[in-house]
């Protein structure tokens, strides 16, 4: 049951050798010692990272053409960024409470996170509204188009997160979870929240710096 093996060690095993056969017969069937949900989330995050990296590459490539005109960053975007940061912190707190089994506080945290996530989405929509009203259409410059595209894709990821947050929270409130599952699921949602914060910081930073 060697879990600490690196991919290279795994690939160089010699499955025909006697020692290896004995060790292999005891293998429990899992490659890594984490829950399938957690590994699933990591897979999705890896795919999302590729997706956002390709957007960043496309952005950096397109930026070099001379028709590029920067768009302003409304102060509300900073505010929304703040909301995301706070919701990540609260989620971190929620995982701590869940681990210590202070479940009432966990519940409050979860509610607050939901409120923050919806506020973030509404905040982003208000930013859109403001920008459109001041004439920054997606068609008027490609920088604007990238802004709308990035916020949409990031927003869709947030909506996906809200779906799983909702499932976790409702199961939690209905008390239909085992203790390990509570920790596992809240952990997973928290990691995803941190991931989306990082993605947003990268995208926002990219748009600020150009």
């Amino acid at each position: 049951m060697n879990r600490k093996k690196s991919i290279f060690q795994l690939l160089t095993e010699k499955p025909w050798e006697t020692d290896q056969i004995e060790a292999d017969n005891d293998h429990e069937g899992r490659t890594v010692n984490i829950s399938k949900q957690k590994l699933g989330l990591r897979t999705i995050m890896a795919a999302s990272t590729v997706l956002f990296s390709l957007f960043v590459v496309a952005y950096s490539d397109r930026m070099l053409v001379n028709d590029w005109r920067n768009m302003p960053e409304p102060w509300l975007l900073w505010f929304n960024t703040g909301i995301l940061v706070i919701s990540s912190i609260v989620f971190h707190q929620a995982t701590k409470y869940a681990k210590k089994e202070i479940f009432d506080k966990t519940k409050n945290c979860l509610y607050f996170i939901g409120f923050l996530a919806y506020s973030f989405l509404i905040g982003q929509l208000i930013v859109w509204y403001q920008l459109i009203n001041t004439g920054y259409y997606a068609t008027s410059n490609v920088a604007n188009a990238f802004f709308y595209l990035f916020t949409t894709i990031h927003g869709l990821h947030i909506i996906g997160g809200i779906y799983f947050w909702g499932k976790t929270t409702s199961k939690f409130i209905k008390r239909s979870l085992k203790k390990e599952d509570i920790n596992n699921l809240i952990d997973i949602c928290a990691v995803y929240w941190h991931f989306l914060l990082v993605v947003w910081l990268v995208l926002f930073g990219l748009m600020l710096s150009s």
């Binding site: 069937g29 490659t31 590994l39």
Partner: peptide, 21 residues
């Protein structure tokens, strides 16, 4: 679908089924 294939291969194999088997 791909999520399923990856997780199933990595985590749900029978006992004794190492990657190199």
């Amino acid at each position: 679908g791909g999520l399923n294939y990856i997780i199933t291969v990595l985590q749900l194999r029978a006992r004794g089924m190492t990657l190199m088997r």
